[in-house]
Amino acid sequence: MKNIFDRWTRRRLKNFVMLGLTVVATAIALVPLFSILIYVAVRGLQALNWDFFTQLPKPVGEPGGGMANAIVGTLTLVVLGSLVSLPVGMLTGIYLAEFGRGKLAWLVRFICDVLTGIPSIIIGIFVYTLVVVPMHRFSALAGGLALGILMVPVIARVTEDMLRMVPKSLREASLSLGATQARTTVSIVLRSASGGIITGIMLTLSRAAGETAPLLFTALNNRYWHSGLDQPIASLPVYIYTYAISPYPDWQGQAWGAALVLVIIILVTSIIARLASRKKYFGWN
């Protein structure tokens, strides 16, 4: 009898220890998250002021200056990227959810998922070879294309997932009223899924705004305002990289400032997306 009791105690002890370890693991994962957020907030706030948003970067040694060109540059690149990725991505998503069947749809869905796992630097050297070499210069267009290519598969899958959440009965009701399939897709299905799709797109865009590697060999960088879309353009992530590895404390401080701006953009979008999606679009599940 005693023996059985002992084994039971041992099993319970093991249970307690292992379950405790899973709590510890979760706690450990949160340490770097909070460390990053706190450092970025504290060091970033020291660097942020009005000039940061309105001035151009100053040369080494001159204090002050800002990253107005990089902020505008990042926005420009994301908009250029959306011009490529939104139409192609959303149409692909619609194809996958509404029209596609059989092997082709399977293949497209599979390729989309696989493409999201390809390192972004590969997209960078791809666009370099495809666009920068023939054009003989780095340009905002090339940078925008690189971001666009990164976003396309994500947007396609987000659109597909959101469209699939629209109940079949809505489609049937529309079709039974005599609407064509295109009309049904655009006016009924797409419209009821619009909130979820917009949320997904916002998240994708905010992630793209933080991409560095694909921009290094496409958009490059620019110390001034860009003079055209066929010219190199500044961006926040590339500035963070160059300033962080520079030996100048002034520049390193500005890198933290830029990181704070970037993280705020991403955090705010993520939180809004999370709240919006919880309220409405995932409520159906």
Partner: peptide, 15 residues
Amino acid sequence: VELLAAIPSVVYGLW
């Protein structure tokens, strides 16, 4: 935990 995936690579580098 998923927020960790949203932080840009270059910010990880800086930190």
